[in-house]
Design a protein around this nucleic acid. Sequence first.
DNA 1: CTGTTAGCGCATTCAC
DNA 2: GTGAATGCGCTAACAG
Lengths: 344, 344
Amino acid sequence: MTGRSRFVSAADVAERAGVSRSAVSRAYTPGAHVSAETRRRIYAAAEELGYRVNRLARSLHQPRSDLVGVVGANLANPYISAQLAALSAALQRRRLQCLLLNTAGSGPGAQEDLARLLDYRVRTVVLLSGAAPDALIRLCAQNGARMVLINRPAPPEGAAADLILADSAEGGRLAAARLRAAGCRNVAVVISASRTSAKLDRARAFAEDMARHGVPVTRWAKGENSYQTGVEAARALLARPGIDGIFGVTDEIALGVLNTARAEMGRRVPDDLSVIGFDDAPVSAWASHGLTTVAQSLEALTAATLEAIDCAPEAPPLHLRLPVALVERSSVALAAHRHDVIVP
Amino acid sequence: MTGRSRFVSAADVAERAGVSRSAVSRAYTPGAHVSAETRRRIYAAAEELGYRVNRLARSLHQPRSDLVGVVGANLANPYISAQLAALSAALQRRRLQCLLLNTAGSGPGAQEDLARLLDYRVRTVVLLSGAAPDALIRLCAQNGARMVLINRPAPPEGAAADLILADSAEGGRLAAARLRAAGCRNVAVVISASRTSAKLDRARAFAEDMARHGVPVTRWAKGENSYQTGVEAARALLARPGIDGIFGVTDEIALGVLNTARAEMGRRVPDDLSVIGFDDAPVSAWASHGLTTVAQSLEALTAATLEAIDCAPEAPPLHLRLPVALVERSSVALAAHRHDVIVP
DNA sequence: CTGTTAGCGCATTCAC
DNA sequence: GTGAATGCGCTAACAG
């Protein structure tokens, strides 16, 4: 069709419509002036040829692109996938494009893969999983891209990145208080092995709060952030009697615990064991689970992310702390009755 | 830093390293020859400045880009998210970038949003949800991009698109046979309202096979492809006794049915009611569900998609039919005993 | 092996 | 309002 290239270009359209290339360019530039007749002929020619403005070429002129890099690892995780669904839909509404990077597929070269996002001149890099090495944050700054960290640990120091954090400490305390109210006297917290991120904060706040009230806490920290980790934790922790409450730092983990406790370890939940999670993933509300959990609002998270994305490149970093709330369902005992404890 | 632009360019690096721009370009081009010393100085300068090759500009020269457009609507759906996770990881391994489009966020302008993917000169458009209007398929062809349809209806005719289909008919028959083996004599199939896609084929094959064996089938086709649709179907279908087997054309739907049957409608599954799904989403294997289902292999699906992506633009369209297999779990009764039926 | 030149597709001056 | 010329950042074909 075009002769010289696979793609149809503005020159092709110009020739077809009998106008100059500049006219074509103007016809697709919002602020430009073209006569109605010229525009009509250009659009007609474009339609026939299947012409589309090449945004790759266009972006060479613009100070920043419409590309937003989104980085995740556990894309099949119920909460992460809900996050991604909400974020990508919101980006779509703003006419921003989402360049998705799944670091689970990148092996040891993850750092390099992350950097490669910048090759596409993304205006922002949003991190849903993993950590942000300061080298990468510096790279972003040098290339005029903002970096948004969602429930990630704060960067080393001085490194400028937007921070969006659900209130992990408050969430950990809420979970602890709720289990105590249920009369639990010997609890466990299940974390994955990941040493980064908000998950540690949730666990720490939980443990501290329990310690302050004299309740012993067993820590289980192996595996990745997955359902399977919850399964294995439950098998180990419930092998013998004792534990009467478990906090999974993630709904997915907590659901692994919950299901294994019931199906394999012969526990009645919440009668013998109370289980509580963190996230409020859609699946936690299903009748098969009824997981009591600490909710972080997806809407608030998405709105905050968009706010960060809208920031000018040189604007000072944003630090947003999002509130959390306890969602009561049926995986935690209603009140203390098995131990004759007075709820504070 | 650079003076003229936000981004650091090859010219900046060249100046800093005391070489020409071409040398910089060559240092980053796989097949090119640069002396070790020159390369070292260039890399050093690039490191200091935070230089990265601008792939947007680079792609102006290349016949096709490294961008693959991936289109989905229900990104939070358990199976779709698993699909996306597998696909994006695989793309990552191939050094291909994933441009994600969530059509759920685009409202009525979905068609235009889809077309906008081509503005980025994606080499391939992969459709996970929704339909492919022939106008769009034509547009792809005109722009040298292939279109890959996964479990989508075949395009009108002559329109060239790669088709990757799990064997819906076989799956529907497997589900029917399994329910009959369980002794079901009055069954229902739950479809969403979507008139497109493989879901209809699954339901049709199921219904035909049942009809052939004289088993009446109730059709329930409202709502979208979601858990909630399964919930509402179960409420309606199980309001009075009669139905003893339900086929959900999607695991998510089937799980809505399963959970509602148990928790709200007082049915014991599989004793009073057998439930079977389609997909084999990870969550279906959880102990809380134990959903018997028709599995389409994620690995096979991903491999097939990559095969299509690897095709040259002018290669003839691919038509791949992927086998399905029944995965036995605990949501379907073991054998016919309630009705004294001989299993064929 | 290196630097110079041209051109990718586009937006944006500048004349007319 | 329109067309010709320039430059965005890069690669490739050219000469040295």
